[in-house]
Design a protein around this nucleic acid. Structure first.
Length: 481
RNA sequence: GGCGGCAUAGCCAAGUGGUAAGGCAGGGGUCUGCAAAACCCUCACCCCCAGUUCGAAUCUGGGUGCCGCCUCCA
């Protein structure tokens, strides 16, 4: 069965087809660089990173573009607040974006266009819109005339006449109405206020509106029509609706074949938003949790559903991640011991696992279902690992085990789950094997003499060094970690 | 006022006509001086009512509850 993706435009799952065979052009709306990104942003980036990875795994050549908005009121405000420039603020948070997203194992985009580097393209687009009667200048601003675009509202499923201006309660409707012909017209270009960064234009000194940059960037980096355009649910309207209006009015071609939107991250049941101030920065979260635990947390829910961010949920994901991580680390810990070579063959279990994984992912990226496959594989490995540690042998032939591991590693990579030994785990404890053996002998003597206090003292001492003892009938085994 | 979504175990969450994946937590057991680690086993009739069907968590109608969007937002 082929891959089916839910398309916001049609409100249906549709078989995925590309414009150009074998190639995918994909655009994801990135951050406005005025703060570290929050966990809601992170969800979008993780989700679409997985979409990209999966398409690549299926054999598509994916060109992935994600923008940085580096002109914006919020960046400007912050710059004023800190007595610095808009550029300095933007640079800082773009750099931070890379640090945080790298930790989340989000693949780098092929291109990261910025608004400030796209001014020419933006001006050209506005000019074309003006020429074709979709835009008008007004006191140094330029607005898009939504009534001129017959399809306005097709993405978000609304009609201009049915919309209630100001229903969100965030906008002062009267504010700009003087300059606009219609309440729902939106700014393509804003006249600069004194002291603000500004660019020359036929309409006077000013800067681009928010929506226009994406239209210009898509066009510049990917062409008139692309395969996937993605972002958070909230971008559906007005941002993406406006992008469509801007782009399609000029090109007369569909901006994107598939529009994908991810659901929100709620904080303890309540919507997380900048205005409510209850957002959680990814950077802060990663001080407490393994980035992969967070990734797992996100991937355990379907991307279009809202997900509730709670400490319990994160804990559960962190515990679950341990299992997958142990499976992934199997090779580096025991591969050599088991004499694994690079030879490959595939067992039936593995084929079934891959098929199940694919079935889940083909169904509009059912990562939750896909994860069940990973857990199954990881648990096998975990069991064998423990058998090895406790009994010194495995119940599955090493070669077959290797295929298990290989498959787990491959599928985990599609989901962007990567296991790394922490510094603690890599650095062996202060005690040498010989020292440990000596202590064990002492403890054994104490145990035989029923001096359990002494035996427990030694056990605790070793435990503090990260060494776990396994008392068995045939003697005591131990392992680090 | 308009548009849309969701409701599955203690928690999270798949499944969209054939008799409930998975994760976390829990319970029981084996082993042990006691632990720990490990292993094995175990844990749901799917918000309510009516209907369609041989058969429904899954379709239809009606309720109830929660949530999102209608120019800050991923």
């Amino acid at each position: 069965m082929p891959l089916a993706i839910y398309n916001t435009l049609t409100r249906r799952k549709e078989p995925f087809e590309t414009i150009e065979p074998g190639k995918v052009r994909m655009y994801v709306c990135g951050i406005t660089a005025y703060n570290y990104f929050h966990v809601g942003n992170a969800r979008a980036f993780i989700i679409f990173d997985v979409v990209r990875r999966y398409l690549m795994w299926l054999g598509y050549q994916v060109r992935f573009v994600q923008n940085f908005t580096d002109i914006d009121d919020k960046i400007l405000n912050r710059a004023v607040q800190e007595g610095t420039t808009m550029q300095a603020i933007a640079e800082r948070y773009i750099e931070a974006y890379f640090e945080d997203s790298d930790r989340l194992n989000i693949l780098r985009a092929d291109v990261y266009p910025r608004a400030t580097h796209t001014i020419d393209g933006i001006k050209r687009l506005i000019h074309e819109l003006e020429q074709q009667g979709f835009a008008y200048a007004s006191e140094g601003d330029v607005y898009y005339a939504v009534r001129q675009f017959a399809d306005y509202g097709k993405l978000s499923g609304r009609k201009l006449d049915e919309m209630q201006a100001g229903a969100s309660g965030r906008v002062e409707v009267e504010d700009e109405s003087e300059k606009k012909k219609d309440l729902f017209d939106f700014a393509l270009w804003k006249a600069a206020k004194p002291g603000e960064p500004a660019w020359e234009s036929p309409w006077g000194e000013g800067r681009p509106g928010w929506h226009i940059e994406c239209s210009a960037m898509v066009r510049q980096e990917l062409g008139d029509s692309i395969d996937i355009h993605a972002g958070g649910m909230d971008l559906q309207f007005p941002h993406h609706e406006n992008e469509i209006a801007q782009s399609e009015a000029v090109t007369h071609k569909p901006l994107a074949r598939f529009w994908m939107h991810n659901g929100f991250v709620n904080m303890d049941g309540e919507k997380m938003s900048k205005s409510l101030g209850n957002f959680r920065l990814t950077r802060d979260l990663l001080k407490e949790y393994d980035p992969m635990a967070f990734r797992l947390f996100i991937l355990q829910a379907h991307y279009r559903k809202p997900i509730d961010f709670t400490a319990e949920g994160l804990e559960a994901a962190a515990n679950g991640w341990q299992t997958i991580k142990e499976g992934l680390l199997f090779e580096s810990e025991f591969g050599a011991q088991l004499g694994w070579t690079s030879g490959e063959s595939v067992g039936t279990k593995i084929e079934t696992a891959i098929a199940q994984f694919k079935t889940a992912m083909d169904d509009d990226f059912n990562t939750s279902g896909a994860l069940a496959v990973l857990f199954d594989l990881a648990k096998d490995l975990k069991r064998e690992r423990n058998l090895l540690v406790h009994e010194g042998t495995t119940s599955i032939a090493p070669a077959e085990l290797q295929h298990h591991w290989h498959t787990l590693a491959e599928l985990a990579d599609v989901l962007g789950l990567k296991a790394e030994l922490t510094a603690e785990e890599t650095t062996p404890g202060g005690l040498s094997d010989a020292e440990i053996e000596t202590l064990l002998e002492e403890r054994q003597t104490a145990r035989k003499a029923k001096n359990f206090a002494e035996a427990d003292r030694i056990r605790n001492l070793l435990q503090e060094q990260g060494i776990t003892l396994i008392d068995q009938a045939g003697g005591t085994r131990w392992h680090r970690g």
